[in-house]
Design a protein around this nucleic acid. Sequence first.
DNA 1: AATGAATGAGGATTCATTCAT
DNA 2: GATGAATGAATCCTCATTCAT
Lengths: 224, 224, 224, 224
Amino acid sequence: MSQTPRAASINHRTLVGQQRRERTRHKILVAALKVFAQKGSEAPVIEDFIAEAGIARGTFYNYFSTTQELLQATLVWLGADLIASIEHEIGALTDPLLRLTTGARLWLGRAACDPTWAAFIARPEFLDALPYDSVFAPVMDDLQTGRQSGLFHFPDTRAALSLLTGTLLIAMRTYLRGTPYPEYDTDIVRIILQGLGVAPDRVATVLAQPLPTLRRTPMSLKSN
Amino acid sequence: MSQTPRAASINHRTLVGQQRRERTRHKILVAALKVFAQKGSEAPVIEDFIAEAGIARGTFYNYFSTTQELLQATLVWLGADLIASIEHEIGALTDPLLRLTTGARLWLGRAACDPTWAAFIARPEFLDALPYDSVFAPVMDDLQTGRQSGLFHFPDTRAALSLLTGTLLIAMRTYLRGTPYPEYDTDIVRIILQGLGVAPDRVATVLAQPLPTLRRTPMSLKSN
Amino acid sequence: MSQTPRAASINHRTLVGQQRRERTRHKILVAALKVFAQKGSEAPVIEDFIAEAGIARGTFYNYFSTTQELLQATLVWLGADLIASIEHEIGALTDPLLRLTTGARLWLGRAACDPTWAAFIARPEFLDALPYDSVFAPVMDDLQTGRQSGLFHFPDTRAALSLLTGTLLIAMRTYLRGTPYPEYDTDIVRIILQGLGVAPDRVATVLAQPLPTLRRTPMSLKSN
Amino acid sequence: MSQTPRAASINHRTLVGQQRRERTRHKILVAALKVFAQKGSEAPVIEDFIAEAGIARGTFYNYFSTTQELLQATLVWLGADLIASIEHEIGALTDPLLRLTTGARLWLGRAACDPTWAAFIARPEFLDALPYDSVFAPVMDDLQTGRQSGLFHFPDTRAALSLLTGTLLIAMRTYLRGTPYPEYDTDIVRIILQGLGVAPDRVATVLAQPLPTLRRTPMSLKSN
DNA sequence: AATGAATGAGGATTCATTCAT
DNA sequence: GATGAATGAATCCTCATTCAT
């Protein structure tokens, strides 16, 4: 029952040491949660860009001074492209339900055939950085118009936009790991429309519409 | 009206130069899309962790050798915590609808009061890294059970999971910019349930249930 | 026969670049020769000592403050041990030839059975650091005495010491890679004596003498 | 004559303490012997190389990734140079005695005029690392040929090589502390030849041969 | 306009040393 | 006296940036 002082001392030292170690480790984990939340875990270096583009180190600096500047240019280029390609197809349509459905299907179709584009878009930090007015404002318009005309039923347009973009985002990320099953893209659109409160018969009708093909080459393959 | 050959040559050279410039610039943008898609745009430095944790530079390396190792440990820790805290509250419940609804509401509640946790969880790269079996498998179970008992109506469980997690993810990111409007969290749950094909009267009933409080201290504040 | 300016320019640039690279590489090699000559290539860290000794970090500092201090103490300890062990055996002998031969054979015998000791001794930087007076002065004495009495024939005692220590050093290093052949140690002593100008019949006689066993435990094994 | 128990206890404790101290100290010394034997006592830092070469920190890493890699390159370069310079002078000679003697004298001559080179070569760890086939195999050939033709008399070629390289190594290290006396280099060659069992008159003859000058600039001074 | 060797500041990592237990 | 967690200075290494060609 009693221990020699030495043994006790060793045990006590060991115990205290372990507790201290555990406390420090925990401090680091709490800090890490915060830091990773703010910054992600990996950043590209100039080398990555020049290797991928097949150009020389110095050439890069003839075009962009910093990685941030390049990111900005990429976002602008991408935003313009998004609007150009999607709006080009649905610009002529007036029915909000058909516009949203077609937009979502085109979006998913591109994700399926251009993983690089999908991987970029599906990073919320980049999604957030897209110009709201030209990318999301039209969607909000469609949601509101469609709700007023009784096509949609949902408690709030902002919640509806969350459902729409969130589900598409996860779907795109799902595609990055390979198509889960043949009808996944249709099911995604279907469940989104159900979430927006569209009547089942309307869902069937709108999904029966032919889908225009996005005439754009995948961005990651375009040589010019 | 006519030009000297020299002038023509200059124009031609200028034109060729501009085209070359444009082509190189485009090459870089295509490369950038790919690289940013793979790596994000910003990475933390060790300094960030030690400043946040209030420890010395060397101490960090007594616990973790690389940022990747720390990230891994953080994910494991977080995964365990998620299960422990959520399951603790809904473990006693058997109704799949009530379980999902309560889980989603608790999740949103935590996001509202612990932005650091939300910001970490709402990074899809981290969300993807969470242990599927312990975090998402139970949700899949509830979706399937509920569908079989006629509570839910949706085309496929995987699509339903996409809607659920995607909408919650966007909602969490929305909270990071401030609560958009008082009823946002309720509306998000409401629209998710609508998306899962829950009958409107059941939605009202389940939302009337009292919400157990998550007794956990926010992770970013926990001292031990 | 003529090249386009562009091709010429590229070739020239490439050529200039290669030459510059080669010049820089050479500059580094020249510097490296000098630096390695002064410092060797690897240094131990405290961790090495405590791991080997099986003690705690702090304990080390209860005994030695710096690596240099430890090295000094090691050299002193080793020097004392060398003298104690060798002199103990040959102290009673008066014949310079027998003394040198016995010393060399004992030295080689220890090298064969204690590689750690041999590896330490056979580093010229440590050999140089041994106290000259107690380790080499007696040898010089034997060489001089033996030369005066007609046992040895060589142009200069310093050259003779070079031959003796150099050959033994290489022999010790040879043992570190395993005994080359059974009679190697005897041959080494034989060739040294021939180098010192000892008459062949005397070589045979002195090698026929029985060799006292070094009663010392190998240093690297001694527990106390 | 008798002591109080307390005093006895104190003495005993003191004694036990001293013994423990001595035992720990000894453990460290034994460990130190082993560690120093394996690693030497000092290693260069990158700063040493770049300061010596007069280049920037980053430039170093454009050429070599680690100190070990640089050491390897230095050894390769040195080996090639050794063969080129020595073989160039003795390549035309056929008499093994003359070849060995000339080689040894050139080697010593270079050591006298290029201390950096000597200091590098005279580190046995580097000497060991030189490519055996191109550096030592030719010497072994000369020893064997000369022995068969009756020029040399020694018990074994491997022992003879030990004597040759060992004596030269110590001679080179001796030069690093300044020329000991004017005839030292000749005496070293003389005593080596005696060790190899060369007849005295032959020694005199071969040493009378004129020595070709090594036309090579000292490596440490070569600009390209 | 393109190139890539050289640069050095900044960030990563090691390791000698301290000190509370 | 022994321990080992914590420390931060020293060192290593990367990588954004420049610039001569």
